[in-house]
């Protein structure tokens, strides 16, 4: 499915390692299964050839890893970024979370990444291996004698179905085109929730969030959640490390998190990708993005480094709080 191959990436990384442009490579390493790919640092060509993988399951957004990895790498660190990752990259730069000089960005094209849950929905559990051939995916399971062939488009992740941009907004070098911002229907689902009555909406979120096990995966993967110490880990904050004692707390964790990343979230979708309970957490953030667009004009976090986000900026054209209520009333 991907236009670019593992070999091309290894070749690029090896060249940059060999000519000493970089001394480490942030890439994808093999996990237990083919679909279980893990961000890994490679320090040599040998390591790359042994462990580097690239497939339709390389969805992880590497930007956040740079906060720790860039400082830890002796020289520059090479990072492969998909278009959506570059927005997070800029946003983190805006927040001074790593040193741009320490990073060498190679932008890679992306055809959309696969959602393993969708694969499992078609092929069932017990997946042994997943191969890729053109637009098809061949899935071998414990229970089928023959590998099952499925259409890669059918198992695209939600965030890739609603891809907002194929444009690389930050890079040192590109493998492929710079790409363009594209039209997407990513706010349709938010609009559907907005159209609900408050009771229906409450029931919807109650149902979704009740599955939360407070594993913190959403927070840990989120490129906007890079605090030195998260309020949920800080004993002095009064809200630290609580596993949800009741439905109120499990909702509050996600709502507080959505508030903390409001105006900073680039809509990369990592929160929903990593959620083991398949809670559509990205919808909370998208609601904020939609509101910010409507209240302050179109704003895409991370589109440029150093942008002033509407929520931490003041202009005389800003709408007055009262206007928010006027709009709400006129909608009703």
């Amino acid at each position: 499915m991907q236009k670019i191959t593992r070999e091309q990436l290894i070749e690029k990384a090896s060249a940059l390692l060999s000519n000493s442009t970089v001394s480490c490579v942030l890439g994808w390493g093999m996990g237990e299964f083919d679909y279980d790919v893990t961000p890994t640092t490679f320090n040599s060509v040998e390591e790359l050839e042994k462990g580097f993988v690239f497939s339709d399951f390389c969805g992880a957004n590497f930007s956040k890893y740079l906060v720790k990895k860039a400082a830890a790498c002796e020289g520059k660190i090479l990072v492969f970024l998909k278009p959506c990752d570059t927005y997070s990259f800029n946003q983190l730069l805006t927040e001074h979370r790593f040193d741009r000089e320490k990073v060498y960005v190679v932008g890679i094209p992306c055809e959309g990444m696969a959602d393993i849950n969708k694969v499992k929905a078609i092929c069932g559990e017990g997946i042994l291996s997943i191969g890729s051939k053109g637009d098809k995916m061949t899935v071998t399971t414990l229970y089928d004698d023959e590998p099952v062939s499925i259409d890669a488009k059918e198992v695209l992740a939600e965030r890739c179905l609603n891809c907002k941009s194929k444009k690389h907004v930050a890079f040192d070098e590109l493998l492929g085109d710079e790409g363009d911002v594209i039209e997407s229907n990513r706010f349709d689902e938010v609009a559907r929730l907005e159209a609900m009555t408050p009771d229906e909406r409450f029931a919807f979120w109650q149902n979704e969030l009740s599955r939360c096990i407070r594993c913190n995966a959403c927070r840990d993967a989120c490129p906007a959640c890079t605090c030195e110490k998260c309020v949920f880990d800080n004993p002095n904050s009064g809200v630290e490390n609580k596993s949800p004692a009741n439905s109120f707390e499990e909702k509050l964790f996600h709502i507080i998190r959505a508030y903390h990343v409001a105006g900073r979230c680039t809509d990369c979708g990592e929160c929903s990708r990593v959620c083991p309970q398949n809670i559509p957490l990205h919808l909370l953030n998208r609601k904020f993005i939609k509101d910010i667009n409507e209240f302050y004009g179109e704003y895409q976090a991370g589109a440029e480094e150093g942008q002033r986000a509407p929520l931490v900026d003041y202009t005389t054209e800003d709408l007055e709080p009262g206007e928010v209520f006027d709009r709400r009333d006129s909608d009703a």
Partner: peptide, 15 residues
């Protein structure tokens, strides 16, 4: 300073 990220949000909003 132990938990400050240096993200500049505060300076952005400081009137």
């Amino acid at each position: 300073e132990l938990i400050c990220n240096g993200c500049s949000s505060c300076a952005n909003v400081c009137p």
